[in-house]
């Protein structure tokens, strides 16, 4: 067995009645890296996290986390993981400090350490001023930060983050990303689930795309984007009869042949982003082509899904109830 895999799962299967939440999934995260599980609601992401954190027993397959078997060595495994999720699992009727101290005591940290650790984390997560306020007075972003802090109390070498930024405002998202990056820089292994390609893109070293309980692609973010087709420039012309002239003018910018789509619009695959719009506008202007609209299009989760599955990444009836609520 490769000794440096912090998370290693093979052939994981789990059904709820007739619904196959996981239908044979293999996962691997090397120590100190971030593995992103990307997929829509109901894809099986939360089920995978629950099996790896010992909350659920798989129907088939096996998994090891920090070298411990999820079924046979669950107690030892739990000492080495932290879990934070979409639910912000903190007690509303306790203060922020009380929540973290409670978690520290339940990890059986040495005497005095839970309180020290709580103060340290509240400081780091910008919650020191709110330390002695009841959590029910916290905003959604504050609760999420506290939840993540709770997962870090025992400095676990492996972190499981189940949609850590779902429902957060953009600023809180970026703050949380920076915190996660800090943990990874300090050597923590992270398994992160997300519905957002940009989040996986920024944080994950490897991304596993799952849909309906199966892994449909695996690779680095660049590799996935290549499969999707990278970025493109969408141009809409004022005069649809000029499409050929416009295509010729934009040819030098394109990484592949510009595609002419209906109604005087062009899709131009490009390999870079910087300065593309300005250059396109200049070239079209020189060629005497009038522009109604021009925009960069970046690959989204929908594009990944369209390309990989041939259908849009619509919510598939949420059989897992992933993140449908949360405020």
């Amino acid at each position: 067995m490769a000794g440096d895999a912090a998370i290693e799962a093979s052939g994981l299967r789990k059904s709820y009645g007739d619904v196959r939440a996981l239908d044979g999934i293999d996962l691997r995260a090397a120590t100190g890296t971030v593995l992103g599980l990307l997929g829509p609601n109901g894809a099986g992401k939360t089920t995978a996290v629950r099996i790896l954190t010992t909350l659920l027993r798989p129907d088939g397959g096996s998994a090891r986390v920090a070298g411990f078997d999820v079924e046979r060595e669950a107690a030892a495994l739990r000492r080495r993981i932290g879990l934070a999720g979409q639910y912000a699992a903190v007690d509303e009727n306790l203060t922020g400090a009380e929540n973290l101290e409670m978690v520290g005591r339940l990890y059986h940290l040495p005497r005095g350490e839970p309180r020290r650790r709580a103060a340290e984390l509240l400081e780091r997560f910008d919650l020191a001023d709110a330390a002695d306020r009841l959590v029910r007075t916290y905003s959604g972003g504050m609760r999420r930060r506290l939840d993540l802090a709770a997962a870090l109390v025992a400095r676990p070498p492996i972190l499981f983050l189940d949609e850590p930024t779902a429902g957060l405002d953009p600023r809180s998202r970026i703050n949380l990303w920076e915190t996660i990056e800090g943990r990874v820089a300090a050597g923590t292994t992270v398994l992160l689930t997300t519905q957002y390609l940009d989040e996986a893109d920024r944080l994950a070293d490897r991304i596993a795309v799952i849909d309906r309980g199966r892994m449909i692609a695996e690779g680095s973010s660049d590799e996935l984007k290549d499969q999707v087709g990278g970025e493109r420039l969408d141009v809409t012309l004022e005069d649809r009869t000029q499409v050929d002239a416009a295509a010729a003018a934009l040819e030098p910018l394109a990484s592949e042949r510009p595609a002419i789509v209906l109604d005087g619009a062009l899709r131009v695959p490009v390999s870079r982003r910087q300065g593309v719009i300005a250059e396109a506008v200049r070239r079209l202007d020189e060629a005497g082509v009038g522009i109604a609209d021009v925009a960069m299009h970046r690959p989204t989760l929908d594009d990944v899904f369209l390309t990989l599955t041939g259908r849009a990444a619509e919510q598939s009836d949420g059989e897992e109830g992933d993140a449908e609520e949360e405020g």
Partner: peptide
Amino acid sequence: KKGLVDRFRSLPMSRSA
């Protein structure tokens, strides 16, 4: 409902506490 049971069950604590 709030996910606290998930957190407690992921901690190295007693199963009955």
